[in-house]
Amino acid sequence: MIPVFDGHNDLLLRLLEAPEKRREIWLTGEGRGQLDLPRMRAGGFAGGFFAIYLPSPVAHDDADLMAQMANPPYRLPLPALMDATEAADPALRAASLMLWMERASEGAFRICRSAGEIRAAMAEGVIAGIMHMEGAEAIDADLDALHAFHALGLRSLGPVWSRPTIFGHGVPFAFPSSPDTGPGLTAAGKRLVAECNKLKIMIDLSHLNEKGFDDVAALSDAPLVATHSNAHALCPSSRNLTDRQLNIIRESRGMVGLNYAVSFLTPDGRKDPGCGWAPMLRHLDHLIERLGEDHVGLGSDFDGAEIPDVLGDVAGLQGFIGAMRDHGWGEDLIRKIAHDNWLGVLERTFGA
């Protein structure tokens, strides 16, 4: 079994939406979702980024949005900006739930704040968790809350989750579309990048539009990382990265984690969970060609996306490893993609 370190999941959202079921969801599994502690162990899930993601306060018709995404072309409207005061409470509750996960696991799961802590946890057979914020709505313009969340364990942050923040603009969910969909970082966003660099908080480029991407690339002194994004050349979704962007990430010695969401994998943008392993392997091939084999990993989007049926959930990860072997890759390359490359870029970001 090859351990897998993962760039993105939304388990905290499931816990946030059903806190009364948190023990069942996390410790035993409730027969739903794609992640829980027993299935992580079964699939060789060694650790990853656990996202603090906040649903928009205004309800929308999920069924209608899913129907539109199932039949491209589409361009979905973005929710309105959330104020930091309304975002602070749910973000703090999500962070608190991750701290609870560590306590409730009785040693099976550990929040890690450095690359060295991740390596130590993996060596002990303990699942390593990085606290990540997907969209910086809970961070105020003065960045005081950034320091508070950093003290809680935050080590990775995406300035946006598609909807706008006071820091920048995300891409809409659109197909076909380039990621060049709006203006770049605001003045507050540029201060956020500088402060994240000082605190050694990784900046996640997934969901950020192209001009914002370019602003981060110009300002940041850390490797450029997109935790859960795919190749625009193979699937022209606004959420995917162009070859130009991939070249910039390569030059920074950064990293891209493959997103398993079928609508960002298939060439026609359709939600086809019966697509098999082939689209995932094609995107990995393209990312390796553009970035080099030391800068590509996995970024599942478990519990946040519809994924290929052949994978199913986190327990199916070793099946994906088997598909890589069948694809002709050697063990060294598979280990790089499965976990070594993530550990490398985190050492370059956090320090050893």
Results as ranks from 00 to 15, higher is better:
232 H>R: 05
232 H>Y: 14
232 H>L: 01
233 A>V: 13
233 A>H: 00
234 L>M: 02
235 C>D: 10
235 C>F: 15
235 C>I: 09
235 C>Q: 08
239 R>G: 07
240 N>D: 04
242 T>D: 03
242 T>A: 02
243 D>N: 15
243 D>M: 15
244 R>H: 14
245 Q>R: 02
248 I>M: 13
248 I>S: 01
248 I>D: 00
249 I>W: 09
249 I>S: 00
249 I>G: 06
250 R>I: 05
250 R>S: 04
251 E>V: 03
251 E>P: 13
251 E>T: 04
252 S>K: 15
252 S>N: 07
253 R>A: 09
254 G>M: 00
254 G>A: 03
254 G>N: 09
255 M>C: 04
255 M>R: 06
256 V>L: 02
257 G>N: 09
257 G>C: 06
257 G>R: 09
258 L>H: 04
258 L>G: 15
259 N>V: 06
260 Y>L: 15
261 A>W: 12
261 A>M: 04
261 A>Q: 07
261 A>H: 08
262 V>P: 13
263 S>W: 13
263 S>C: 12
264 F>M: 12
264 F>Q: 15
264 F>Y: 11
265 L>W: 13
265 L>S: 11
266 T>G: 06
266 T>Y: 15
266 T>M: 03
267 P>L: 02
267 P>C: 03
268 D>R: 07
270 R>P: 03
272 D>Q: 14
272 D>F: 12
273 P>D: 01
273 P>R: 05
274 G>D: 07
274 G>K: 12
275 C>G: 04
275 C>L: 05
275 C>I: 10
275 C>R: 13
276 G>C: 07
276 G>Y: 08
276 G>A: 06
276 G>L: 10
277 W>T: 02
277 W>Q: 07
278 A>F: 00
278 A>Y: 06
278 A>R: 00
281 L>D: 09
282 R>A: 09
283 H>K: 08
283 H>S: 02
284 L>Y: 03
284 L>T: 09
287 L>T: 02
288 I>Q: 04
288 I>H: 14
289 E>F: 12
290 R>E: 08
290 R>G: 08
291 L>C: 01
291 L>M: 03
291 L>H: 02
292 G>I: 00
292 G>H: 00
294 D>A: 10
294 D>K: 06
295 H>F: 00
295 H>M: 11
